[in-house]
């Protein structure tokens, strides 16, 4: 029996390394205990060292891509599920194309969940200006991802916000980007971030870009689930926008047409004098 402890930071590399060694030594899935959170190592204190790297393991590229995503899922079974598929791939090289296979379908579903979580993180992280002075501006955000998505998503923020320093703190892992260097640290409780006046402007924009005549609350919540709202500054306006929508539209309907402002006539005269088109 092998017990493989996996660290919270760098789990992808650790799992890949262990899987290569175990597969190289032909260790079947049922002889491995993948220890996600450090609980299993206490139960089975005697750890068998992992087998040495013996040979190059060839796996389909599509498996590598799948594994690189699924390792960030929050299901404690993810490592075991991946290894089981890897084990089956030895004798079924075409397996990756079989979308109807149960094991693979489950992993694809998990992959989709991680992709969605990464996407939502890219969308919903909200930075606040720390106003620290200095050459580079610095910003910080608090975010609560569903899966372990900080590590695979941080490079996106590094590519996008390279000319500023930033930190994304989460209960799971915290990412820091300082002077162009990205680093990861253990998760933390929610930090106290200073108020940022730009959030009010953003709220103003959110309220005014909303069209009250097209209320579709479910279309909003399916893409921006409520679990994210507490960390989105604009979400505080949602309840009032929904409550006031009907009255606003009714007002537009009830208002009698007005007379054009005075300048309208003057502008019309001017336009009539010189045709605007120059074809």
């Amino acid at each position: 029996m092998y017990t493989v402890p996996l660290p919270r930071i760098g789990a992808d590399v650790a799992w890949r390394d262990a899987a290569k060694r175990l597969l190289g030594a032909a260790v079947p899935p049922e002889d491995i205990l993948w220890d996600d959170d450090g609980t299993a190592s206490g139960l089975f204190a005697t750890q068998t060292p992992l087998p040495p790297v013996t040979r190059r393991i060839k796996v389909p590229q599509s498996f590598v891509e799948l594994a690189n995503t699924v390792v960030w899922h929050n299901d404690p079974q993810r490592f075991a599920r991946l290894y089981t598929l890897l084990w089956r791939l030895r004798h079924q090289p075409g397996l990756m194309q079989d979308r109807a296979d149960r094991d693979l379908a489950k992993l694809r579903q998990m992959e989709k969940a991680v992709h969605r979580c990464k996407h939502k993180m890219k969308a919903f992280v909200r930075f606040r200006d720390l106003r620290q002075g200095g050459e580079r501006r610095s910003f910080a955000a608090w975010f609560e991802p569903t899966h372990h998505t900080v590590e695979p998503t941080a490079p996106f923020f590094a590519r996008r916000f390279a000319d500023m320093d930033w930190m994304i703190a989460t209960p799971d892992v915290t990412a820091q980007f300082v002077d162009g260097n990205l680093s990861f640290h253990p998760g933390q409780p929610k930090p106290d971030l200073p108020d940022d006046a730009t959030e009010d402007l953003w709220g103003t924009y959110f309220c005014n870009i909303f069209n009250p005549a097209r209320l579709k609350v479910q279309a909003m919540t399916s893409e921006m689930p409520k679990k994210y709202w507490k960390n989105l500054p604009e979400a505080q306006h949602i309840a009032d926008l929904i409550a006031g929508a009907e009255a606003k539209v009714q007002e537009m309907r009830d208002t009698a047409p007005t007379l054009p402002p005075q300048r309208a006539a003057a502008i019309k005269r001017q336009l009539d004098r010189k045709p605007p088109a120059k074809e």
């Binding site: 996407h119 890219k122 609350v217 279309a219």
Partner: peptide, 17 residues
């Protein structure tokens, strides 16, 4: 400042969906 990587990102949704 900034990046574009193929698919766009919807950063928020208004109650009009």
């Amino acid at each position: 400042l900034g990046s574009t990587e193929g698919s766009g990102i919807c950063h928020a949704y208004a109650p009009d969906g």
